[in-house]
């Protein structure tokens, strides 16, 4: 590539921010996705209490797990939708012809999805507190860190798999089938961490779960960053 062309080409970070702004703007104009996600997740939280009966002790003990299951189910919808928007008018091809770095597309999509899931989590926590009668014992900071790490952990591998399944047949079945076994470690540590935040952490185990989440994030953001360009290449 000739030097002037290379100079005019924006860097990875700039491209990422521009693309993310575009995605969030589309999202903000309709707010359809976030609204749908919030009500879907709230319905899920409500349904858990119906499915298990009015045993408050049981609900209180498992609140962390239910919160993360609701976020996980919502994330499947959100991830699928984030690529459906792009495939509708072959927008992804347009973005790639722009030419945007494929890795920037990954970062913007994954960060956008993580932001959406984080917003969802923040909105769900008060609902969970009200529905299940839990208290936040160890502090809001711990809960916030678990929410941030958990949303990031769900969205990095989720973005790669959503890009794959959005072009396949039966994508609505394929994405959960691929994603659920993969995010089990993230789900497990996020749910366990949230439970510790809600029930107290006498054994100081919270740090190791946060570490596991952090490691999961590092691995999958790295893997996604490297492999995503191969997924959307032609």
């Amino acid at each position: 590539m000739s030097p002037p062309n290379a100079k005019r080409r924006p860097g990875l970070l700039t491209t990422t921010l521009v693309l993310m702004r575009k995605d969030l703007l589309i999202e903000w104009r309709t707010r359809a996705r976030l609204n749908a996600l919030v009500f879907f997740a709230m319905a899920t939280l409500l349904l858990f209490s119906f499915a298990l009966g009015p045993d408050t002790k049981l609900l209180e003990r498992n609140a962390g797990g239910y919160l993360w299951l609701a976020i996980l189910f919502a994330s499947v919808l959100s991830l699928g939708e984030s690529f459906r928007v792009e495939t509708e008018n072959a927008c992804l091809d347009g973005v790639r012809l722009a030419p945007a770095d494929a890795r920037a597309i990954f970062l913007s999509k994954a960060l956008g999805n993580a932001l959406l899931l984080l917003a969802l989590g923040v909105l769900l926590v008060p609902v969970m507190v009200a529905l299940y009668g839990v208290r936040i014992v160890t502090g809001l900071g711990d809960l916030a860190s678990i929410l941030v790490l958990g949303s990031l952990a769900l969205s990095a591998p989720g973005t790669v798999y959503a890009a794959i399944s959005s072009n396949a047949r039966a994508r609505d079945v394929l994405l959960p089938l691929l994603l659920f076994p993969l995010v089990i470690p993230a789900l497990l540590s996020a749910a366990k961490g949230t439970t510790l935040v809600l029930q107290g952490d006498p054994m100081q185990q919270l740090g190791s779960w946060q570490g596991l989440l952090l490691g999961f994030n590092l691995i999958y953001w790295g893997v996604g960053f490297v492999l995503f360009p191969r997924v959307i290449e032609d």
Binding site: P157, V160, Y161, I164, N167, A168, L178, P181, L182, I184, P185, L188, S189, K192, S208, W209, L212, G215, F216, I219, Y220, V223, L227, R230, V231, E233
Partner: peptide, 28 residues
């Protein structure tokens, strides 16, 4: 061609996942 590339990506991610699953379940 797409099938080959995508399934290779899924296979690699799945294989990377195995040790993580093992450790996390052991802690769990």
């Amino acid at each position: 061609e797409k099938r080959a590339v995508w399934s290779a990506v899924v296979a690699i991610i799945g294989a990377i996942n195995l040790p993580i699953v093992w450790f996390s379940v052991r802690w769990w």
